[in-house]
């Protein structure tokens, strides 16, 4: 019985010398796995045009109805998106969002994917409404081909 006790102490003693498994968070951030469902990203083609065609399937499938978008015709001279229409306004309410990833699955153009960003704290409730500008990838960092969908992959 006393041996058991000493064994237990030995286990914790060994753990003292192991490397910590935690991270120094603000300085060191944990790399997120590829399937992590963080803040949504709206993607572009390599020529800078948005993939989104404003079909609103994401808004339709969204269980908490957190997505709101308004469609507009593309001006052929100065196109914004690659399709006939583009989303003039694209908002996701991040308090209502349940991070289920259905929008990602429903999107026929692979325009909306969920990214690795998880630091989304804000001071005002109104700031949690995420606009298109916050979600769009930078113009110079486009994706030539549609990326492979992250869902339905083995972990």
């Amino acid at each position: 019985m006393l041996i058991d006790f000493i064994k237990g102490l030995a286990v914790t003693f060994k753990h003292i010398w192991k490397k910590p498994v935690t991270f120094n968070y603000p300085e060191v951030k944990r790399p997120q796995p590829a399937f992590y469902r963080g803040r949504h990203r709206l993607q572009r083609y390599s020529n800078g045009l948005e993939r989104c065609v404003a079909c609103a399937l994401c808004a339709a499938v969204c269980p908490p109805e957190a997505i709101y978008l308004e469609a507009e015709e593309n001006d052929p001279k100065r196109p914004v998106g690659a399709g006939e229409r583009y989303a003039r306004l694209y908002q996701i309410h991040q308090i209502r969002c349940i991070w289920c990833g259905f929008c990602e699955e429903a999107c026929p153009e692979d325009a909306i994917v969920m990214g690795p960003i998880f630091e989304m704290a804000n001071y005002k409730r109104s700031d949690f409404v995420c606009n298109k500008e916050q979600m769009l990838d930078a113009p110079d960092k486009g994706f030539g081909e549609p990326i492979v969908l992250k869902v339905n992959q083995p972990l």
Binding site: H15, I16, K18, K19, P20, V21, T22, N24, E27
Partner: peptide
């Protein structure tokens, strides 16, 4: 600190001497 090490955490390392000029490298 000791409990943190036993649980393989880092433990308190936020409030140190790094506010003194020249000791900033001690942060964390």
């Amino acid at each position: 600190v000791l409990i943190a090490r036993i649980q393989q955490r880092v433990g308190p390392n936020r409030v140190g001497l790094d506010f003194i000029p020249g000791l900033g490298f001690l942060k964390g």
